[in-house]
């Protein structure tokens, strides 16, 4: 006979982790200028090594844990000599989009609906992948929201990535997968390829895709460019190119641009030689950029038993969101 087990614990107000330990609210509750977080736990559109569907949860956990060991509240951030701001003031976690396994169209529309709502309201959607395909629905929603908010506005695009992701199709996955997301974004109505920039591309790439990008005025910085020119100069040039004639920037952060020796927990590893410090310096170059939306993708916790990948990725968010999570020491 099994004895009845009784447990007693305090009520859980919000079970699970939220990004930066921020509040969990609906899309409609996000204010102008705030970061609105959308999880995209989908890896059906990756062609080989899966596991990125666990990425959003891992990023939420890692940012919350890193946050807990950093200065809180009115403390001064030692990295920036700026005052830290509680996440509740600048970020709202809207939870995950509804993912319909193996129905890429339904998943696309579900993600896009959330980022569209955020963008149209003047908030900044931050989408957590998921494989890199999900960057397209995230940007699709942002694009639609921008068109509602500012019909004539245009946006530039920077993709930090080990790969171009500019194929038109990929084998059995057709036109909607992790190798075509940038191509699909280039077809949106309020962006032009001449305002698209890739940073960190490594190794062998498809020659046809590269020609197509550069013939249309897009710009590609390889990992070697980052080593030769330095991350600060590369991102200065990248931002200037992307923002020509544009009002806002959409940033897609694919973690796999970092060398796999540092960061093995991702589906399509590259050996770029890009170090964590270089990657963070690249992101530092965008701290004051007019961010309209962003995503971070390809965090695959099952592929890294050491768990360092998710913490390296969480640190990327700390870098790119510095403008939001800190303020001048003199600010009220």
């Amino acid at each position: 006979m099994t004895a009845a087990i009784s447990t007693s614990h305090p009520p859980l107000s919000q079970p699970g982790y939220r990004l930066f330990d921020g509040p969990l609210r609906c899309v409609g509750d996000v204010s102008v200028g705030q970061i609105g977080v959308v999880g995209m736990p989908s890896d059906w559109t990756h062609s080989s090594r899966l596991g990125t569907r666990f990425g959003p949860d891992a990023l939420r956990r890692a940012t919350t844990l890193l946050q807990s060991i950093r200065p809180q509240g009115a403390s001064v951030d030692p990295d920036t000599s700026r005052r830290t701001v509680p996440a509740i003031d600048w970020l709202v976690d809207c939870g995950d989009a509804e993912i319909t396994a193996q129905d890429v169209d339904a998943t696309t529309q579900a993600i896009a609906a959330m980022t569209e709502g955020l963008s149209a309201a003047g908030a900044i959607p931050l989408a957590l992948g998921g494989d890199h395909y999900n960057s397209f629905p995230a940007c699709l929603g942002y694009s639609r929201g921008l068109a509602k908010r500012a019909p004539n506005a245009r946006f530039g695009y920077i993709q930090i990535d080990g790969h171009l992701d500019f194929s038109d199709r990929l084998g059995a996955w057709g036109s909607l997968n992790h190798a075509t997301n940038a191509r699909r974004i280039s077809e949106l109505p309020n962006i032009d390829v001449s305002n698209m920039v890739w940073v960190g591309i490594a190794g062998w790439v498809d020659g046809g895709d590269l020609v197509l990008i550069e013939e249309q005025g897009g710009k590609v910085f390889s990992a070697s460019d980052v080593h030769k020119l330095g991350p600060v100069e590369v991102m200065r040039q990248a931002l200037a190119h992307a923002m020509q004639g544009c009002d806002e920037l959409y940033l897609s952060i694919d973690i796999d641009a970092m060398d796999a020796g540092y960061l093995p927990g991702t589906g399509s590893i590259v050996h770029s030689g890009i170090t964590p410090r270089q990657y963070y310096d690249l992101l530092d170059g965008l701290t004051d950029a007019p961010l309209g939306g962003l995503d971070i993708v390809e965090v695959s916790p099952p592929l890294d038993p050491s768990e360092r990948t998710e913490f390296l990725a969480a640190e990327m968010l700390f870098q790119i969101l510095r403008r939001f999570r800190t303020c001048s020491v003199t600010a009220q």
């Binding site: 194929s167 490594a202 062998w204 498809d206 020659g207 046809g208 990992a223």
Partner: peptide, 8 residues
């Protein structure tokens, strides 16, 4: 695919 390019 088209042809490979050594991006470096």
């Amino acid at each position: 695919f088209s042809h490979p390019v050594d991006i470096d």
